[in-house]
Design a protein around this nucleic acid. Structure first.
Lengths: 259, 259
DNA sequence: CGCGGCGGTTAATCTGTGTTATTCACGCGC
DNA sequence: GCGCGTGAATAACACAGATTAACCGCCGCG
């Protein structure tokens, strides 16, 4: 087991999706079983750095991330690259993607990755039979858009320090909500070069900025493991308002129990 | 009629939505009639600079822009403001917005604006009865997301000149596809200050950059009217690839005729 | 009629971040 | 064991774009 696959903690598995959707709405046993079934139907694995889907491809499947990290990215013709989103376990790509004739961006694996491929038919059966899942999936999609908007704000308004701090906050909270982080600690398999492509900074400056966060006693980051030492202070520094992640489920915040 | 309302050309009206959706799919007479009906049900107008909906509000309606320009924006706590999207006639805000408990951003009118408010029920009736409209609306939503991603790329990778050029290209093409631009000419009611908030540049630098575009003979911009003098060159400068707007309707590109 | 505010323009100065380059540590394949 | 590629860490220097400030024209308003 190399350093890449070790970035995907146990306990993730098919549950990451279920776990995340339950942040929004209660799911019945039947709902959860249906999710597990659909997700188990057809799996694929990709190696780190491999493309999961490429700009120009005709989209035919919905992918659900089960394990590992990936990213959406776009190249400009002259080679510049922008990462526009990170995929974490439990995330899934645009529900309606097959409406479009071709992908306008690529999806690349950052670590070794396992995905579930869901065909159009299975997907339609799932949402026809399980209204709560449907609702939860739409919520997931809206959060994805909200995140994209927040990235626009991040790149447009925040300076380097705030920018990286904000990204760390977001990823930490998202991992936490998928059950993949505790006590300020999580896997973090993103290289400084990837961070540069995601934040629109040079990798040299990403390095400088990470040093600063370390020296401020805000984070520890080494060996693809991140520890946030003072989340509150990091949030304040980043002007991070978790609102846009819409994680607030009415009343039932903590009970991931059976219905 | 003041200079604000003059920015919304005639011929827009309820048709802007229909016109745009037909870029993607053929709509039958019945489809189009249904669209007109829903859009005529309940209208509201807003003055320039007025907020159409505010961060924190509970979303209950879907808005369709009929006339005028608006924008989505977010404030950071310390007052910095980022415009994350422009709304043009024919655009509509997130279809599923009522799934969320509160808005995570605001929508503000840039000019005087007319919108159609569509309630949940009317909307559900519309999509139940008109599968082609449903498909076209999803397509519209996917394009909105794709635009948001492209803005991320724009802010992350392009320098000031490319950035503004890119935004001008996007807005021109979108207006054109809504039937609101011809021969390189369109209304452009966005102040330099708004442009600054949208591109993440200072307004001084926006001014300098617009000068440069003018001196290069690429655009004419005055009195809230934009003329693009050399679209091809502007696109090349901006590294603009219209792919992400997904405007390609199979075969039938130009026939807006009856079915 | 004069005043104030907004949008646009220009200039001088400062700074955050990019660029280029070098070095080090580590793991991998041969 | 050696060479190589990749990720990380620093340093010196350059520059795109921010900041601040002043000024103009226009329009609406008292």
């Amino acid at each position: 087991m190399d350093h890449l696959s070790s970035n995907a903690p146990k306990g993730a598995g098919a549950n990451a999706l279920t776990c995340k959707l339950q942040q929004f709405t209660r799911l019945s046993l039947a709902d959860r079983a249906a999710l597990e079934r659909v997700v188990a139907e057809r799996r694929r694995t990709f190696l780190g750095r491999e493309d999961i889907s490429r700009e120009g491809d005709k989209p035919t499947k919905i992918y659900v991330m089960l394990n590992g990290w990936a990213c959406r990215y776009k190249f400009l013709e002259d080679g510049r690259r922008q990462i526009v989103a990170f995929f974490l376990p439990g995330d899934l790509c645009d529900l309606n993607i097959f409406i479009l004739r071709q992908m306008d961006h690529s999806i690349g694996a950052l670590t070794d990755v396992t995905v579930a491929e869901i065909g159009r038919d299975s997907f339609e059966r799932l949402i026809d039979d399980h209204p709560r899942i449907t609702q939860a999936l739409w919520w997931e999609a809206l959060v994805t858009i909200a995140i994209q908007r927040e990235w626009t704000v991040n790149l447009g308004q925040r300076d380097a320090l705030e920018r990286i701090a904000h990204l760390l906050c977001e990823l930490y909270v998202r991992l936490w909500s998928a059950g993949l982080a505790t006590d300020g600690h999580c896997a973090f398999p993103v290289t400084q070069s990837d961070l540069a492509d995601a934040t629109g900074l040079s990798k040299v400056h990403v390095n400088r900025t990470l040093q600063e966060l370390r020296q401020e006693g805000l984070i520890r980051l080494a060996n693809r493991q991140l520890t946030i030492l003072d989340l509150d202070r990091l949030k304040r520094l980043a002007v991070f308002d978790p609102n846009y992640l819409h994680l607030d489920r009415e009343g039932a915040h903590l009970d991931a129990n059976n219905e």
